[in-house]
Design a protein around this nucleic acid. Structure first.
Length: 205
DNA sequence: CAATAGATCATCT
DNA sequence: GATGATCTATTGC
């Protein structure tokens, strides 16, 4: 029960369904909390979301959308349920999900996953990981493990295909905790980081 | 363990 | 030309 898949791909297809666009059209904070426990799928690899951060629109100075519409932030101002992938620190890709109705630029940063499916493939993509936690605990780590890059910028996660967000047909219950966001300068105290309390795959317990 | 340096580039000033 | 929603290896306790 160390490096083995918790959920085979076939079972994942059977027991989960794609989240509809309406799921992402609500207030960013609600969408962020709602994404906990959902399944991010890319190709034959997948993981359950255990940690996220909400980034609001013009009132949030830490958000990329704060400066308004630019070539990079274009997708944030479009319809919800799309992927906002950006490159940071000359090295890493980060995945966000666009929230709020068309025209309103909220988004949710995916910070950590619990790997469920395709773990052998994830290990090949992340040879530096020495434990299952190091595979997908961190925004740059999980994109590397799942093979997510800027190539997927603007992708629609609500359409059937290799890149989707899913929910369990029978949803389990779990405790949610909140705290300040990580690695930002502005709005440091806003409690917009949400995670599944007690989960080993959260990036900072 | 904790602290820190280095990698390295898109974006905006 | 500076900065950043990070990760890794290395050093020092």
């Amino acid at each position: 029960m160390h490096w083995s898949d918790r959920i085979p791909y076939r079972q994942l297809e059977r027991e989960t369904e794609i989240l509809p666009e309406a799921f992402f059209a609500g207030p960013t904070i609600e969408v962020a909390r709602g994404l906990l426990g959902k399944i991010l799928v890319h190709g034959r690899t997948a993981g359950m979301i255990v940690e996220v951060e909400a980034y609001l629109g013009e009132e949030d100075r830490a958000a990329h959308a704060w400066r308004g519409l630019t070539p990079r932030t274009r997708v944030l101002f479009g319809p919800p349920g799309r992927a906002y992938v950006y490159f940071i620190y000359g090295m890493h890709e980060c995945l966000n999900i666009v929230a709020e109705p068309d025209g309103s630029p909220g988004c949710v940063l995916i910070r950590a996953l619990e790997p469920t499916t395709g773990i052998a493939r994830m290990r090949r993509r992340r040879p530096a990981a020495r434990t299952p936690e190091e595979l997908t605990s961190g925004p740059g780590r999980l994109t590397q493990a799942l093979g997510i890059t800027r190539r997927l910028y603007g992708a629609d996660l609500t359409r059937p295909g290799p890149f989707t967000l899913r929910r369990w047909v029978r949803e389990p219950a779990f405790p949610i905790a909140a705290g300040p966001r990580i690695g930002i300068r502005h709005c440091r105290d806003w409690p917009l980081r949400f995670f599944i309390a007690g989960n080993r795959f959260v990036s900072r317990p």
